[in-house]
Amino acid sequence: MDKPLNNKAWFFVLPVFFLVAISAIIPLMTVVNYSFQDTFGNNQFFWVGTEWYTDVLSSSRFHDALLRNLMFSGIILAIEIPLGIAIALSMPRKGIWVPVCLILMALPLLIPWNVVGTIWQVFGRADIGLLGHTLAELGVDYNYATNATDAWITIVIMDVWHWTSLVVLLCYSGLVAIPEAYYQAARIDGASKWKVFRYIQLPKMQRVLLIAVLLRFMDSFMIYTEPFVLTGGGPGNSTTFLSIDLVKMAIGQFDLGPAAAMSIIYFLIILLLCWVFYTLMTNFGVDAPEKEVD
């Protein structure tokens, strides 16, 4: 009874289906395949079961890298989301300054990852970089190549500089969609600025914030280029994130099996965390008629 009326639609989906198959599903299945096997080259493979998984999951190398990732994403979200909201709130809603602000905000987004890495790598060098040199002149001992904290600070600043704009633009689009009457009603109700934010702006930004959090989480969790360009994962292993470790393992050491197992785990973690964020943020404040609220 509910049979689709127009089967032609499937033909239009077909090219996309192939594309996704080639670019995602087939590689993913190859990786899944690798993760259960071992090889000594010559295209000879042996079935090893879940051995690689237990190996990876119990290795401290993996634990450390995962912890670094979680810490990095946590810091990034904790800085970029509030900062993005704050900047969006302070941007003008009307007038000639709107396009100026929007263009300024969009600029960092246009720069490719590796360029951002290079810019900051040079910028922070004590010998020729403006920042590094100035800090050295001021007597601050700053060196991302030898000091783990400095390397972290640099990468975080890099990411904040590069990606906060995205959060700003998303939040701004949510803010300008709020009708003027809401602000007027709030003024009449005697609401403070904080309450206007808490009860009008924040709820109305909920959808775009969800997108912003998801995008920024996924992106930051997959961070690769910036630490790679800056220090190649160092100093020591201090900025060796999962992605960098994975590449080291797969390409540097040619340990395809464990690397495959690790990427599957990596992938599942991202999926799981995204699902958690999504459920948390969509359930927050949703109307449930049968559920009474105190």
Binding site: A181, Y182, Q184, A185, I188, Y199, K204, G285
Partner: peptide, 19 residues
């Protein structure tokens, strides 16, 4: 300001605090 005048206003489209 509106809050100092102590008035109430009902707008064309209902304004409520969603959450």
């Amino acid at each position: 300001s509106p809050e100092q005048r102590n008035i109430a206003q009902v707008f064309q489209f209902p304004v409520i605090y969603d959450t």
